[in-house]
Design a protein around this nucleic acid. Sequence first.
DNA 1: TACCAGGTCCTCG
DNA 2: CGAGGACATGGT
Length: 223
Amino acid sequence: MEVQKVYKCLLAKFGPQGWWPIFDITTKKCKYRTIGFPKADSHKFEICVGAILTQNTAWKNVEKALTNLCNSPLCKRGARGDFQGLTPKLILNSKNLEQLIQPAGYYNQKAKKLRIFSEWWQKSNPTKIKRPLNFCRIGLREELLSLWGIGPETADSMLLYAFNQPIFVIDTYTKRLCKELGIEFREYDEYREFFESQLPQDPKLFNEYHALIVAWGKAQSSK
DNA sequence: TACCAGGTCCTCG
DNA sequence: CGAGGACATGGT
C-alpha cells in the first residue's frame, strides 16, 4: 500500500492526534491537542526533555516524571511564584533530579542525559541564535546526535516536534508497521528516508503521521 | 509471572 | 561492524 494511503487509513481510524503533549499547570496533566508548532521556548525545551525521558518507556511514566519536574519549586519564579515552565536551569539546579524523574525508569542514565542536554541548550541557545536556513535540517541534527544519550529517534523527535523540521521519526512501532506492509531495511536512516521520499516535506504531516503510527502501535499491543 | 514501553550506550568477538 | 547486555519503572 502506498505510504499516503496508509496515512489516510490511520487518520480515518484514530483521528487527529495533536502531538506533542504539553504539561498544563491548571490541570496538572500533560495535554494533547497542542495547537500547531509550539511557540514558547519552555514548551520546546519540555518536548526535548520528554523525548529523552520516553526512551524505551511508556509515556504514562514519563508524564509522572514531567509532573514532578513541573511541580518542583524551582519551576516557579517572580513575586507571585508563577509557573514558568521547564528550563535548563531547573534541570541543572535540581539536587534531586534522579528522584524527580524516577517514575520514568533508567533514572540515573536519564538524569545524566538531561544534564548534558541542558548544558548544551544553555550554551548553544537553539531557539535564539540565528542560523543559516539550512542549518536546522542538517547541522542541528548532527549536533544533537553528537550529544551523549541522544540517538536518532530522540534527535528526530526534537527536530520535528520542538523545531518544526520536516524529519520523519522512526520508532519500533514504525518498523513494526513497515514489516506488516512487507517493507524492511537495515538502518534507521533508511526507514526515515523511505518515508521522507514518499511524502511532501510538511512538518505538520510528519507530526500527525508519526503520532498516528504510535496510536496504531499502542492499539496493536493492547490486543 | 513474564513481557513490554514513543532507545541508547558499552563491551566483546 | 553486529550481537548481546545494562539500564529501571509501572501497567497488563
